[in-house]
Simulated assay, not measured.
Amino acid sequence: MTEPETLPEVRPEAPPRQPWAGWDTVIRAAGVIISIIATVVTAFLELELSALRIGAFEQMLSGDSPYEGGGAPLPLAVPLAIGANLAIAWFAVTTTGRRWAVGPPWALWTLLMFAAAGTRSTEGDYLLGATNWVALVMILAGSLTFAVYSYRMILKPLAKPAATGSELSGGV
């Protein structure tokens, strides 16, 4: 007499693991850190450009410092502040998926601008004087860019999670 054959035990397979599972927190933290670094870099670039004048190109061609040039102020810092701050706000919110992510770059940018406007040099001059209208407009426009971006996010309704078949539907 032969023994009955036993079938091998069938175990249910675990669903395949996503290759990026668990990296969500790392990506969000990296998004905030990169947006903060970008804020510092662009803020210092904007502060440098706020002192630029039309005569700077002549000075640069002759080999001198571009900050010794004369003429009318060159308002390159204003569109740079608007564009860079808009891009930083978008990047921070997009990479983190959280609306609060616009806060750290906005606060840091504003603090850097206030520090530059309120700091005196060793001679007693302010780094950004009251006569530098480009710097004053840049501070206003840059901060308003963050504010308008935040306001538009407030007006946008929250995204609802996609319904799955396992959720209970309302109603009796």
Results as ranks from 00 to 15, higher is better:
A116P: 04
A116W: 10
A116K: 04
A116V: 00
A117K: 08
G118T: 04
G118Y: 03
G118V: 00
T119K: 05
T119M: 02
T119A: 08
R120G: 10
R120W: 00
S121I: 01
S121E: 02
T122A: 15
T122L: 11
T122C: 05
T122M: 11
E123R: 06
E123T: 15
G124A: 06
G124P: 08
G124D: 06
G124K: 08
G124H: 10
G124W: 12
G124S: 08
G124R: 08
D125S: 09
D125N: 10
D125G: 04
Y126T: 03
Y126G: 01
Y126M: 05
Y126A: 03
Y126W: 15
L127K: 11
L127E: 05
L127I: 14
L127Q: 07
L127W: 14
G129V: 00
G129R: 04
G129D: 06
A130W: 09
A130M: 06
A130H: 11
T131I: 00
N132I: 00
N132C: 05
N132V: 00
W133D: 02
W133T: 01
W133V: 00
W133C: 00
W133I: 02
W133N: 04
V134A: 03
V134D: 00
V134S: 04
V134I: 03
V134P: 01
A135V: 03
A135G: 02
A135P: 05
L136Y: 11
L136V: 02
L136G: 11
L136E: 04
L136N: 09
V137A: 13
M138N: 09
M138I: 07
I139D: 01
I139M: 12
L140R: 13
L140M: 12
A141Q: 02
A141L: 01
A141V: 11
A141K: 02
G142H: 03
G142C: 01
G142W: 01
L144V: 09
L144I: 09
L144Y: 12
T145E: 07
F146N: 01
F146I: 06
A147P: 06
A147S: 14
A147Q: 12
V148Y: 12
V148A: 09
V148D: 00
V148S: 02
V148H: 07
Y149E: 03
Y149C: 03
S150D: 09
S150T: 14
S150Y: 15
S150L: 14
S150K: 14
S150G: 14
Y151N: 09
Y151Q: 04
Y151F: 09
R152H: 06
R152C: 01
M153H: 08
M153P: 05
I154R: 15
I154H: 15
I154P: 10
L155A: 14
L155V: 03
L155R: 13
K156Q: 15
K156I: 13
K156C: 03
K156M: 13
K156V: 10
K156T: 15
K156A: 15
P157C: 00
P157T: 12
P157L: 04
L158Y: 10
A159T: 13
K160A: 15
K160M: 10
K160V: 13
P161M: 11
P161E: 11
A162F: 14
A162I: 15
A162N: 12
A162V: 15
A162K: 14
A163D: 09
A163R: 07
A163M: 06
A163L: 08
A163Q: 08
A163C: 00
A163Y: 00
A163P: 08
T164Q: 07
T164H: 09
G165I: 06
G165N: 05
G165W: 13
G165H: 07
